[in-house]
Design a protein around this nucleic acid. Structure first.
Lengths: 110, 110
DNA sequence: TGACGGTACTTCGCATCGCAGAGTACTGTG
DNA sequence: CACAGTACTCTGCGATGCGAAGTACCGTCA
């Protein structure tokens, strides 16, 4: 029913991936993620993830005042973030492959 | 570093998939999962998952006394479990595809 | 003017779930 | 008899996504 649990540990990766293309601020990243298929992502999750990634040293941040609304807190990938994205991406692919194998194994006991 | 978070919500699915082939008891399922690539699965996680799946009505259980050790608590998929396996499997595939798309999107902004 | 909705972010506390650790119990082996 | 392997249970912790509420700024519309 709920994709919440599936997101655990993967939201970090998704946010890093979205930031690889171009810098973004929380609300914008939220829209990008939802637009890419993660429609049930909560806003608080994204903001929390951004804070965590920033504190982990993967992101830099700068504030841009907007004349059409509140200020925007932009985030950008740094070198460590790009490395982390590559690493986590591989871990994810490996994990997903393992799961697909298990799901496909029907009497494939040999 | 840690695949722990990735397992969230997926361990259920993996256990159901492993039980699709044939009935199994906790310790055995643990070995099957580890043998299939989920090498870092903790034993308590598997036992806990089995209890949860049973309470959710997806499994039936029966105890088989063993003459070469402690008794074994076997679990088997029932109809609801098979339905759940199919459903969760689809959710997983859809989710994995979405993630792969996000990870692959490099300047694919059109 | 004031109510409202959209944008943008923060804080709080909850629920889920995998896991480490400890404990129980049975078996065969050195 | 100590020990390792098998098999299971219980307790409590930690990480994380999320709902709810609050703050604040802006433009629109009555």
């Amino acid at each position: 029913m709920d994709t919440t649990q599936l997101l655990k540990g993967v939201l970090d990766l998704a946010v890093l991936a979205v930031l690889r293309d171009e810098d973004g601020y929380g609300y914008d990243i939220l829209r990008r993620l939802r637009g890419s298929g993660l429609e049930e992502v909560g806003d608080a999750s994204v903001y929390g993830t951004l804070r965590r990634l920033f504190q982990a040293g993967y992101l830099t941040t700068y504030v841009v005042p907007s004349e059409e609304g509140p200020h925007r807190k932009y985030y950008a990938l740094n070198a460590a973030g790009r490395t982390q994205l590559a690493t986590s991406g591989k871990v994810w692919r490996s994990f997903a492959t393992t799961m697909d194998t298990i799901l496909a194994e029907r009497g494939a006991r040999a």
